[in-house]
C-alpha cells in the first residue's frame, strides 16, 4: 500500500478512517465523560481509605498494621480484572442497585460496582504512596510539633500530612492517570466508557481500527495535560519549601 493511500483509500483497517464520526461522535463524547467520571470518582473515593490504610500501616499496633498490610498485599497482588469480576458478580450479586440512568447515559447498576472496584484497588496503591510520603517528612518535624505539646494526631494533621501530601503529588497524579487508563477494563462489564464505545463502534460500523485509534487519542488528551497541570500545581506549592 503506497503511503498516500493512508488518507485516500479509506478501507476498514485504515488508521484514520474516521468516517464513523458523524454518526458516533456523541457516543465517544459520552464515553469520554464516562471514563473521566469513573477515574476521578474512584481516586477521590480512594484517598480517604488510602490515608487510613497508610496511617494503620505506620501504627505500632501489630494487629492494625497487619490488617492494612494484608489489604494492600491482596489488592496489589491480584489483577484488577479479577477484582472487578469478583466485586461485580460476588459483592453486587447481593446488593440490589436501582436501574437508574445518571445524566441519561450512566447506568448506576454497572457504574457503582466499577467505581467500588477501582476505588478499592486504587486505595491499596495510594496507601503506599501516602506511607512513603509520610516517611519522607523529616523526623524532626514530628518531634518539633510534639515538643510544643501537640498530640500525635494534631502533629500528623497540622505538620506532617500537609508536607507529605505535597511530597506525593506527582505520584498521586500518576495514579489518576493510571486510573483513567485502567478504567478501560470496565468495558468488559459493559460500562459505556471510551474503550467500550470504541468496541461498539468498531462492531457496528465494521471499521475495525480507527475507533481504537480515536480511543487512544482521547486517552492521551486526558492524561497528558492532566499530568502537566499537576506538575504545575506542584511547582507552585513548592514555593514554601526549604
Amino acid at each position: 500500500m503506497p503511503w498516500n493511500d493512508l488518507f485516500t483509500n479509506m478501507g476498514n483497517t485504515n488508521f484514520f478512517n474516521f468516517s464513523f464520526l458523524p454518526k458516533y461522535a456523541t457516543a465517544f463524547v459520552r464515553g469520554f465523560e464516562y471514563t473521566l467520571l469513573l477515574a476521578v470518582v474512584s481516586v477521590l473515593l480512594a484517598v480517604v481509605p488510602a490515608l487510613l490504610l497508610a496511617l494503620m500501616r505506620l501504627s505500632k499496633n501489630r494487629l492494625v498494621k497487619g490488617i492494612s498490610g494484608a489489604y494492600i498485599a491482596l489488592f496489589r497482588s491480584t489483577p484488577l480484572l479479577v477484582q472487578l469480576s469478583i466485586i461485580y458478580f460476588g459483592l453486587f450479586h447481593y446488593i440490589e442497585l436501582p436501574r437508574i440512568l445518571l445524566f441519561g447515559f450512566i447506568a448506576i447498576n454497572r457504574f457503582i460496582p466499577g467505581v467500588v472496584a477501582l476505588a478499592l484497588n486504587s486505595s491499596a496503591y495510594v496507601a503506599e504512596i501516602f506511607r512513603a510520603g509520610i516517611l519522607a517528612v523529616d523526623k524532626g518535624q514530628m518531634e518539633a510539633a510534639r515538643s510544643l505539646g501537640l498530640s500525635a494526631w494534631q502533629s500528623m494533621r497540622l505538620v506532617v500530612l500537609p508536607q507529605a501530601i505535597k511530597n506525593v503529588l506527582p505520584a498521586l497524579a500518576n495514579e489518576v492517570v493510571t486510573m483513567v487508563k485502567e478504567s478501560s477494563i470496565c468495558s468488559v462489564l459493559g460500562m459505556a466508557e471510551i474503550m467500550y464505545t470504541a468496541q461498539a463502534v468498531a462492531g457496528n460500523s465494521y471499521i475495525t481500527l480507527a475507533p481504537y485509534v480515536l480511543a487512544a487519542l482521547i486517552y492521551f488528551c486526558i492524561n497528558y495535560p492532566a499530568s502537566k497541570a499537576i506538575e504545575a500545581v506542584e511547582r507552585r506549592m513548592r514555593r514554601g519549601d526549604k
Binding site: D138, G140, Q141, E143, A144, A145, R146, S147, L148, G149, L150, S151, V159, P162, Q163, K166, G240, D241, K242
Partner: peptide, 22 residues
C-alpha cells in the same frame, strides 16, 4: 505527656521550623 510538654519548650539543632507555614 502532651499536657506537660506544653510547659517545656524545646529548641533543636536543625531548627525544625515548619516549612509549609509562615
Amino acid at each position: 505527656i502532651d499536657r506537660h510538654r506544653q510547659k517545656m519548650g524545646m529548641v533543636f539543632q536543625h531548627f525544625n521550623l515548619f516549612p509549609h507555614k509562615t
